[in-house]
Simulated scan of single mutants.
Amino acid sequence: MNWVIETILQHRSIRNFEDRSLSDEQIRTIVECAQAASTSSFIQPYSIIGVKDKDTKQKLAELSGNQPYVENNGHFFVFCADLYRHKIVGEMENVDFSTTLESTEKFMVALIDTALAAQNAAIAAESIGLGVCYIGGLRNNLHEVCKLLKIPQQVIPLFGLAIGYPAQDPDKKPRLPFHHIYHEETYQQDRSEIEKELKHYNEIVSFYYKKRTNGKRDDTWTKQMSNLLSKQSRMYIKSFVESRGFCLR
């Protein structure tokens, strides 16, 4: 096993950072690593907004559900699906491909490419001793996020990435069993086997939480998912996406 794989396998979310900013060189390296990710047909449909300003971070923290690590970190990155520059490309080349930009397919390409870039950034940061935490809470109020960051049409902020020097060393959270995730040749749909693996995973997760909280929390993965998915969340997203010029076709 090499150090790259070790870095990936040791990932954990860091939610407590030292009061220490990233250097400009670190920021540039992380962004360049993000740009090195694979991109569909060389489209590169994403942008990254870096936030240093304390007041802006504080507002983003509030919009994300008052998560303190959105405000207190070494640097905050906002990853955006971005087809705005491609609209400009069409105007530069005097070609109308608005129908293509408004397609669900190009929306999916933008989402996938942005996620690939972000994961490259996360691994790069962790490889130099930094900690990371993805922030999906930005989607709590995307209208306000767009106003705050002056984001134009054809651009959607998808999530944030808080990066900094770790001030904690949490245990690695156990993932689903290998054979529950990896299917060979065809999708394995044996319900009894799925339930068996989920019950075993519940035991692992329960032990993890008991150990982490000295017995104060006894929870399972299926219970967490049941509580999470039984509540409607961010149901405005579809109309917001369409209002930004995506998924209209």
Rank of each mutant, 00 (worst) to 15 (best):
H179K: 15
S230R: 09
E197I: 02
H200F: 06
H183K: 07
P170R: 02
K211G: 05
K216A: 15
V205S: 05
L176F: 00
L176T: 00
I204D: 05
V205F: 05
K196I: 00
I204Y: 04
D218V: 07
R234L: 08
D219Q: 10
L198R: 13
Y201C: 02
R234T: 12
D218C: 03
E203K: 09
K223T: 08
H180W: 06
I181P: 01
H183N: 15
Y208I: 00
R234D: 10
E193C: 04
I204R: 06
K231E: 14
P174D: 03
N202T: 02
I181H: 04
E195S: 05
E184G: 04
S230T: 12
S233Y: 10
T213W: 04
Q232I: 08
P174E: 03
S206G: 07
D171Q: 13
F178V: 03
P177Y: 01
F178K: 04
E195H: 05
K216F: 05
G215K: 02
K231L: 14
P170Y: 02
H183T: 07
Y208E: 01
Y208A: 00
P177I: 02
S206E: 12
F207I: 07
I181T: 15
M235P: 00
R191I: 13
P170W: 03
K223I: 05
E185K: 15
Y208C: 00
M225G: 06
R212S: 08
S192R: 14
L229C: 09
D218Q: 09
K196F: 02
L198Y: 12
I194R: 10
H183Y: 11
N214K: 12
K199I: 07
N214G: 14
K231M: 14
Y209D: 04
H183C: 13
R175H: 11
R191Y: 10
Y201A: 00
E193F: 06
L176R: 00
K223E: 12
P174S: 01
Q232V: 11
V205T: 08
D171H: 09
Y182D: 05
K173M: 10
E184T: 10
K216P: 01
F178P: 00
M225A: 14
K196A: 01
D190G: 05
Q232L: 11
Y209P: 00
K216M: 08
F178I: 03
P170E: 02
N214W: 04
N202M: 03
K173P: 02
G215W: 01
K216C: 05
Y201Q: 05
E203C: 04
P170C: 01
G215F: 01
Q232D: 14
T213R: 04
K172F: 07
H180A: 13
R234I: 14
N202L: 02
I181S: 11
